[in-house]
Design a protein around this nucleic acid. Structure first.
Length: 882
RNA sequence: GGGCGAUUGGCUCAGCUGGUUAGAGCGCACGGUUCACAUCCGUGAGGUCACUGGUUCGAAUCCAGUAUCGCCCACCA
């Protein structure tokens, strides 16, 4: 005899959940099965690694909830599951954070130097890295922590070297001068993707460039006017361009203008790129600081003069403006031009300005020597994988977005002028030869001329973080070695992440995965939407509308948050996380807890061997559970979390709590029933609860586990497995169609009676007599059998079954019913009866018309027609009863 | 400038390949101190499914167009 374990009145999530998590870890519950049976189904998710420096935000909470739900489900199914955790070194982001920290210590990147800066970074890693992991645990993430990985660990480093070497050998890597996007604050190249474009109102200035006279001096009386939004770049101008067909400037083409301040001779040339209608129709050309100008410069062989340094100050080329910030220089130049009378106009001008995604600084096009990956061939392959269905994207319309991006892809500038990250494994020899190697120690000698390693110098650039992230699905499993993990878990099953990093990450994993492993790295890409604040606005710290998941968890528990996050979501669609949604999660958790308290607390002292046929409600709830099991299973297999959450919510709350437990109370307290009958009812309640816990566990692991443990004390047979996390997913029992129909009739009658009570305006507490005119003998028997439920549920007594004694006022499937009270109420009933008649009549006429329509009867499927016929018969019978 | 998505009761959202009387939660109204839960129970009101046209026996669902909102992509000074 075990000691009865009572659940406390309140579910104290903050205290209970961490303890449960420890229990799981102690039981090693998250590891893949020790000996997977051959042919066993596999389910693998590689966690999108959160940034190592980051605190958990609500987006992570969504990732965890979705992935954990999938993983727990498959684990319960007995599949060979792996959910592998990790963190991303986030080079630009981490440096951004560390720079701020060392600034407080009175240091800068420059003052520390590369080596000491990196030492400091590793120390910072030791402090920051555990945080995000512990927050994931708090959410209940059943990640296999034994396998936790880091994009800066040795495994990742080797994968990076090997992948890059293979790309190099395949001729897909090149180095060249190009105009790239530069962030003057982060002091590195960034990719197009890391640039956010914002509409801004700038100024369009019109500036006079005086024409050159024969003696080489500017002509005060003649000029060509150019329009620009960036006057400071004029210091780097090397030409002025007009449209070849522009009559206004025909005469000037071939002559030269003189650049203000610097006196540089600028050829006036013709190029169809110029839009005659814009500005003055003449453009200043700055190849070093504008992508279009750069291209035009290439066509016309113009010199490229860079006038900005890496922090966007004017460099030595800028004459008197040397060392000035770009915006200061802009002002100064405009002022000077105004003084000189060469500022012809200025007007507000709407324009699109690129900003650094990380720090918000306005980025600069910058000319520099860069490493590029030729991605076209990789992209074509990656695109084919999706087009041909080897990898599917959920929701489907993102396949088009993906395809469009792949089609228009530009070469990937993978080098970053940062320190924290994987250094590009390329060595230069004094003769300019390049040696790429995947050997950690570097090459022995120059691959081309054989100069010894001592004369070689390694590239200082590091890789874009997304390069190592792109190898994540297989670098985490031991690639490039042919490990048993690769054999067992690769390719993975589902790549789950937000649609905002489809290009950044998913696309790169597809391209690099196919290149490195010759197979798609995952079968399905599940993209979730963004979480927005109330009112549909973005969450932002400045707006103060950020939902902090840890705060929410402390208040209402991880399960409540998890439920709120997936209830009603659709993949790829943004959701608003409102307080009322969170309340809904909290309420549901509370509901489960209290239902369990009731069941556990109402166990008969001694549990007799159950006897007798199960009652209609008992058969019904088992059938409902069977249906819910079926539907939940189907939904989870289809990655449809909203449907899954809806199904389990409804069956637990509406069917089990609202109906079954209310009825069970009646039976459990029925002193006429035998102990054995009461035992049967209670066991049904306990077993159904156990079934519900299994169904709910993937989404709400903590509260279900806690209830499970208590349930095991009182009903070990219903909950045989020691831990729910490793319990089996239920297989649905057969549905009991008869019981469902019968219970539907019964509950319909109860509802109708309650309805009558309310409509009649009788006192809520009063007991009223109820007269029923049963539809037929079967209905009479059913009513008789359910009499003892009807009375308390509808608060009616006595119930008289009186065929034909009086006419009913409300039709139900079992028969018409009437409530006995007084004359005033009778009158109200009369009115209601008329209204009901009219409604039935209208429905009948509509159906008759539909069935009289030959076209419908001939063309609609037989089942549909039959359904309508049955419906008509039902309505007619109900009308007859009134 | 292209592309994508959304538009369903006061709010937040479900509605698969077209098939009963379009669902849920919140909110609202009314009634409830029954020993699981007021984080609850019961009952109810509330929707021309943005608009126009088309396909069909039948359209929230498919097609075309329009409007509004949102997002993504894009090198026009």
């Amino acid at each position: 005899m075990t000691t009865r374990r009572e659940l406390p009145p309140r579910y104290d999530a903050a205290a209970v959940e961490p303890a449960i998590y420890e229990r799981w870890v102690a039981a090693d519950a998250f590891a893949p099965v020790a000996d997977p049976a051959p042919g066993i189904e596999r389910f693998v998710i590689i966690q999108p690694p959160p940034n190592v420096t980051g605190a958990l935000h609500i987006g992570h909470a969504l990732v965890v909830t979705i992935e954990d739900t999938f993983i727990r489900y498959h684990r319960m199914r007995g599949h060979d599951t792996l959910w592998l955790p990790g963190v991303d070194h986030a080079s630009i982001g981490a440096q951004f954070v560390l720079d701020k920290i060392i600034a407080q210590e009175g240091e800068t990147r420059a003052s520390l130097g590369r080596e000491r800066y990196l030492e400091r970074m590793w120390r910072f890693m030791d402090e920051t890295r555990p945080i995000i992991g512990s927050q994931h645990r708090r959410l209940g993430a059943s990640l296999d922590w034994e396998r936790e990985r880091f994009t800066m660990d040795e495994g990742s480093a080797r994968a990076v070297r090997v992948a890059f070497k293979r790309l190099w050998d395949a001729g897909l890597v090149y180095r060249g001068e190009a105009l790239i996007t530069w962030c003057p604050r982060c002091r590195t190249t960034i990719s197009d993707l890391e640039t956010v474009h914002r509409d801004e109102i700038g100024t369009l200035w019109t500036i006079r460039y005086h024409l050159e006279r024969d003696d080489g001096t500017p002509d005060p009386g003649h000029w060509i006017s150019v329009a620009t939004t960036r006057p400071e770049t004029l210091l780097g101008d090397t030409a002025v361009a007009v449209h070849p067909d522009d009559e206004r400037y025909r005469e000037l083409v071939g002559r030269h203008a003189i650049l203000p301040f610097l006196g540089r001779r600028l050829p006036i040339l013709a190029d169809p790129y110029v839009d005659r209608a814009f500005g003055t129709g003449a453009v200043k050309i700055t190849p070093a600081h504008d992508p279009n100008d750069y291209e035009l410069g290439q066509r016309h062989d113009l010199p490229v003069i860079n006038v900005l340094d890496e922090e966007a100050h004017i460099n030595a080329e800028g004459g008197e403006f040397f060392r000035r910030d770009r915006y200061e220089a802009r002002e100064a130049i405009v002022d000077r031009l105004r003084e000189m009378g060469d500022l012809e106009g200025e007007q507000p001008h709407p324009m699109v300005v690129g900003h650094c995604e990380r720090c918000g600084t306005v980025v600069e096009p910058r000319i520099s020597e860069q490493w590029f990956i030729r991605v076209k061939p990789l992209a074509e392959r990656a695109q084919a994988s999706v087009r041909e269905g080897r990898t599917t994207i959920v929701p489907g319309h993102f396949e088009k977005v993906y395809a469009h991006w792949m089609e228009n892809i530009h070469d990937w500038a993978v080098g970053r002028q940062l320190w924290w990250g994987h250094r590009i494994p390329a060595w230069f020899c004094p003769d300019g030869h390049v040696t790429v190697t995947d050997v950690e120690a570097g090459p022995d000698a120059c691959a081309e001329c054989g100069r010894p390693a001592s004369e070689l110098r390694q590239e200082t650039d590091i890789f874009d973080t997304w390069f190592s992230s792109g190898l994540w699905p297989f670098s985490t499993l031991g690639w490039p070695d042919e490990t048993s993990d690769i054999a067992r878990f690769y390719p993975t099953s589902v790549m789950e992440t937000g649609y905002d990093i489809l290009f950044f990450w998913v696309a790169r994993m597809m391209m690099l995965g196919l290149f490195c492993t010759d197979v798609e790295p995952f079968r399905t890409v599940y993209l979730h939407g963004m979480i927005r604040a109330e009112g549909g606005v973005k969450m932002s710290k400045t707006k103060g509308n950020v939902v902090d998941p840890i705060g929410v968890i402390e208040e209402i528990g991880a399960d409540a948050l998890r439920y709120a996050l997936v209830a009603g979501i659709a993949p790829g669609t943004d959701q608003r996380l409102t307080q009322s949604k969170l309340d809904g999660g909290r309420n549901f958790t509370n509901k489960l807890w209290n239902a369990a308290r009731f069941v556990i607390g109402s166990r008969p002292e001694t549990l007799a061997e159950p006897v007798g046929e199960p009652t209609l409600p008992e058969r019904w709830i088992r059938s409902r559970l069977a249906e819910a099991t079926e539907r939940a299973t189907r939904a989870l297999d289809a990655l449809d979390l909203a449907t899954y959450a809806g199904v389990v919510y409804d069956v637990a709350w509406s069917d089990y709590c609202d109906w079954f437990l209310e009825i069970a109370k009646i039976d459990l307290r029925d002193t006429d029933a035998s102990e054995a009958e009461r035992a049967r009812t209670w066991i049904t309640a306990a077993e159904t609860l156990a079934g519900l816990l299994r169904l709910l566990h993937p989404l709400m692991p903590f509260v279900t586990e806690e209830i499970w443990e208590a349930l095991r004390d009182v009903a070990p047979d219903a909950a045989p497995e020691p831990l729910l996390v490793r319990a089996s997913w239920p297989s649905p029992d057969a549905r009991d169609v008869q019981a469902e129909a019968g219970f539907g009739e019964l509950s319909g009658l109860v509802r109708a009676a309650r309805n009558l009570r309310m409509e009649s305006g009788v006192a809520a507490g009063s007991w009223l007599p109820l007269a029923i005119a049963p539809r037929d003998a079967d209905a009479a028997a059913a009513i008789e059998a359910a009499r003892h439920y009807l009375e308390p549920l509808a608060r009616v007594r006595p119930i008289t079954v009186d065929l034909g004694a009086r006419s009913g006022v409300t039709a139900t499937a079992l028969g018409a019913i009437a409530l006995g009270t007084d004359a005033a109420v009778d009158e109200e009933r009369g009115r209601r009866r008329e209204a009901q008649r009219a409604e039935l009549q209208a429905g009948i006429e509509r159906l008759r018309a539909l069935l009289a329509n030959e076209s419908f009867v001939a063309r609609a499927p037989a089942a549909v027609v039959e359904k309508e016929r049955t419906r008509l018969a039902e309505l007619e019978s109900q009308l007859g009863q009134l």
